[in-house]
Simulated scan of single mutants.
Amino acid sequence: MRDLVAGTGYLGKGQRWVARHGRWWGFGLIPALITLVLYAAALGALAFYAGDLAAWATPFADGWGSPWQGLLRGLFVALLFAGGLLLSVLTFTAVTLLVGDPFYEALVEQVEKSEGGGPPDPGLPLWRELWISLKDSVHVLVRAAGFGVLFFVLGFLPVVGQTVVPAIGFCVSGFFLTVELTSVAMQRRGIPVRERLRMLRGRKGLAVGFGTPLVLAFLVPFVAVFLMPGAVAGATLLVRDLTGDGGAAGEEDAQVADEVTAVQPSAPPSARW
């Protein structure tokens, strides 16, 4: 429970950091705005063709009478669009980080400097950084997609599929969203993606507490754009304490847990993972 509260605290701290550094908040909005336009077009196309996809995927229901055919295909459309939204939440961050790699590298470096300094710039050429980011994102997204397929199937279970399964799905999505958001700061420290997953699996509460509120907030149109710079800043602060760069992680987490009730974000907010 303490890690859950601490994770939410880092999210608030990140939003407060960009609120105090307005120029960097505006700087971090640029790649998120570009990605938003792309995703709005993709989700619009999904919504337009969802009915046709439902009919194609359920040919056995062609001869069903009313209301059963409509109920089945309506449920399919709802689950398909919900899955598309969850997938967009996960991939939005990955694509935004990829599109905005130079922007977020500069933002993370500024956060590190304001907190007492961080690791030196790895000095990799831009194409190399983009290639590493792309490979890491694919690695994470393949794992997340496996859970997405599982939750999509479980969504057909009566009652549980419409209550428990979505709740667990949001938590799992929050974990993987945290993995994505911490990628820039982790990459600066030369930590490979498998090690990042291992570190965050060891602190699942911290990762879920940070990422799940963002998953829920990102479902609201345009909120993802405005929260993205603060999310990257908060993820950087989380990484600093997780790796010991910002002081003793245990002491910092305890302090965050004690103070989180006073933190107000500046914007509205199995298998091994």
Rank of each mutant, 00 (worst) to 15 (best):
L107G: 02
E129V: 13
P122C: 04
G44L: 07
G118V: 04
E112Q: 12
V263S: 06
L46K: 10
L206H: 02
L71P: 02
A217K: 00
G7K: 02
P59C: 11
L154V: 07
R128E: 12
A41E: 12
M186C: 08
L46F: 09
L134N: 01
S66H: 12
F175P: 03
G123C: 10
S114K: 05
A145T: 15
L107C: 07
V18E: 00
V172E: 03
F60D: 13
A254W: 03
R16K: 11
L124K: 13
G190S: 07
W131Q: 05
P268S: 02
V223F: 09
K13A: 01
P269N: 06
A47Y: 09
L126A: 15
Q110V: 09
Y49S: 13
P158Q: 09
P269H: 04
M186R: 07
L134I: 03
V179M: 12
P221F: 05
G7H: 01
S133K: 15
R16E: 13
S88N: 14
M228H: 10
R240P: 06
S88K: 12
G9N: 04
T178K: 04
F81V: 15
G51A: 15
F156H: 10
S88P: 00
V159N: 08
T58R: 13
R188I: 04
A167T: 15
S183H: 11
